[in-house]
């Protein structure tokens, strides 16, 4: 689009920062404000900024993967997280938890919690991220 040097130079840094921040928001989402929806939106915003500064072509190159593929993969991950429970004989979308290094004696020590719920939230993140970029980039290229 336009070629403001300041914008072009700043976006590289800003996009990386926003992407990092979006992952931070995603991961803390279960206990504090954040989560897949918000993370995905922040991440997408970063690349929207990049697209405004550098153009859609450059953004696609930086992304490496087609955004619609990212969205579909996200949907697949979310579905897989839901189906996962079925392997343990539980209802579809029942959360499965594994507390890495937790002390069984202390109920408050959860160690490093890894769960199908987190996987699901990552799927949500990818869907939101991919969908928004699909839209914005297609519209950018059109104009």
């Amino acid at each position: 689009m336009n070629n403001s040097i300041i914008l072009v130079a700043a976006t590289r840094l800003l996009t990386s920062l926003l992407l990092l921040f979006s992952i931070f928001m995603l991961l803390r989402g279960h206990n504090l404000p954040g989560g897949g929806f918000i993370g995905g939106l922040i991440g997408a915003t970063g690349f929207v900024l990049y697209a405004i500064a550098q153009g859609a072509e450059a953004t696609r190159r930086t992304l490496r993967y087609e955004p619609q593929n990212i969205a579909m993969v996200g949907l697949g991950i979310a579905l897989a997280a839901g189906v996962f429970a079925a392997f343990f004989g539980e209802a579809f979308f029942t959360g499965q938890w594994w507390f890495a290094g937790a002390d069984p004696a202390d109920p408050d020590d959860k160690g490093l919690p890894i769960s199908s719920v987190l996987v699901f939230d990552i799927g949500v993140y990818l869907v939101v991220f991919g969908s928004i970029l699909t839209l914005v980039l297609a519209l950018e290229e059109e104009v």
């Binding site: 929806f37 928004i132 297609a138």
Partner: peptide, 13 residues
Amino acid sequence: IVIGFGLFAFALT
């Protein structure tokens, strides 16, 4: 909100 955004984006295109 997110779905509303999807609807809006589709309507806009």
